[in-house]
Amino acid sequence: MSQPIVSRPPSPKLGVFSPPFDNADADVILHTSDGVQFRVYKIILIIASSVLKDVLSSASSSTQPSHPAATGIKSRQEENTIILDIKEDSQTTERLLHFCYPSADPALHTLDDVQGVLEMMKKYEMIEVIERVRKLLVTPHFLELDPLRVFAIAYRYRLEEETRLAAKYTLRHPIFGPFVSDLDHIPASAYYRLLEYHRKCGIAACALTADFTWFPNSASRWVWFQCDDCVHHSLSWPLADGKIYEVNSWFIEYMERARDALREIPCSKTVSDPLLLCPSLERAAGCPTCRFSAFVDFSVFTTDYFSAEVEKAIDAVDLNIPF
């Protein structure tokens, strides 16, 4: 596996960047907004970007570029070298060029890094290169910590697969979390559809707590159906085998807590939260019948069945959002 490239800060004074962007025989110089020069090869830029292809072709023939995105790029020629003045800073430019060159991809440590590179690639229409960056946007670290930011960035750049994946990860957090400035760059309708998706997933997941027919055929063996020493719930419940069973009240109390939790955070991890399990396990521990089986049966139930059913329920809910 290739090692990520560690970005080296450029010299604060005007100068040529470090290798591989300092070759004297390079035929293009990118002059960034913070006064750093990148010596690069024209053929690489032409292959990577349709906008830069237009700019470089126009500079060589002394004509005006036809692409709208090329109008803000100033170009001039000195001997055999074309100099392009770009508005991006050296740090973002370095990361972008590493994606264009046949070398290891640079390390993008923050979502700001990813967003900056995506913005520059979108501006210069680097379609093929974007395909490599979009995978970095949905790394587990970003999805776990900032799924709403990932959602907003992905939707902003019309990355449908990444938008849908990030939307599912937002289910692991309360529906109203801290504001993120990336929402300023997407329409309110997209955020509304995300909230609607969250609500519908909560409804679908909560439905599992009031209907036990999805339990496996072996469910009647679990201790909360077998024990006659504990207080039973006032209602009896049908299972997948078509029979009606009495069930211990401490199990129903767990399902009621799970229902409330799933309404707020509709994801599979919610049902195995110790805060939901502990009150029922403590009650089961006081029963001579349940104390020996409750923990194991709960582990099997939540891990092998309940979590899987929650995943199935939310997977059936569509993120109704246009691209």
Rank of each mutant, 00 (worst) to 15 (best):
Ile186Ala: 05
Ile186Cys: 09
Pro187Val: 06
Ala188Trp: 10
Ala188Phe: 13
Ser189Phe: 05
Ser189Arg: 10
Ala190Trp: 02
Tyr191Met: 14
Tyr191Trp: 13
Tyr192Pro: 04
Tyr192Ala: 13
Arg193Cys: 11
Glu196Arg: 01
Tyr197Thr: 02
His198Pro: 15
His198Cys: 11
Arg199Gly: 04
Cys201Phe: 09
Cys201Asn: 09
Gly202Gln: 01
Gly202Asp: 01
Ala204Ser: 14
Ala204Cys: 05
Ala205Ile: 01
Ala205Gly: 04
Cys206Glu: 15
Cys206Arg: 12
Cys206Tyr: 00
Ala207Asp: 12
Thr209His: 01
Thr209Arg: 01
Thr209Leu: 02
Ala210Asp: 12
Ala210Thr: 14
Ala210Leu: 04
Ala210Glu: 09
Thr213Gln: 12
Thr213Met: 12
Trp214Lys: 07
Trp214His: 13
Trp214Glu: 08
Pro216Met: 10
Asn217Phe: 14
Asn217Tyr: 15
Arg221Gly: 14
Trp222Gln: 09
Trp224His: 02
Trp224Phe: 03
Phe225Trp: 13
Phe225Lys: 08
Phe225Ile: 05
Gln226Ser: 11
Cys227Lys: 06
Cys227Trp: 09
Cys227Ser: 11
Asp228Phe: 03
Asp229Ile: 10
Asp229Arg: 11
His233Glu: 09
Ser234Ala: 11
Ser234Gly: 07
Leu235Thr: 14
Leu235Ile: 14
Leu235His: 13
Ser236Phe: 04
Ser236Val: 09
Trp237Ala: 04
Gly242Tyr: 06
Lys243Ile: 11
Ile244Asp: 10
Ile244Thr: 14
Tyr245Gly: 06
Tyr245Met: 06
Val247Cys: 15
Val247Gln: 12
Asn248Gln: 14
Ser249Pro: 00
Ser249Glu: 15
Phe251Thr: 06
Phe251Ile: 05
Tyr254Met: 10
Tyr254Ile: 09
Met255Gln: 15
Ala258Trp: 00
Ala261Asn: 03
Ala261Phe: 03
Leu262Pro: 03
Leu262Ser: 02
Arg263Ser: 10
Arg263Leu: 12
Glu264Gln: 14
Glu264Lys: 12
Ile265Asn: 06
Pro266Thr: 04
Pro266Phe: 03
Pro266Glu: 05
Cys267Phe: 07
Cys267Ile: 04
Cys267His: 08
Ser268Ile: 01
Ser268Phe: 02
Val271Lys: 00
Val271Ile: 07
Val271Ser: 00
Val271Trp: 00
Ser272His: 02
Ser272Asn: 06
Asp273His: 00
Asp273Ser: 03
Asp273Cys: 02
Leu275Ala: 10
Leu275Cys: 06
Leu276Trp: 00
Leu277Arg: 03
Leu277Trp: 01
Cys278Pro: 00
Cys278Trp: 03
Pro279Val: 05
Ser280Met: 09
Glu282Met: 09
Glu282Tyr: 08
Arg283Phe: 05
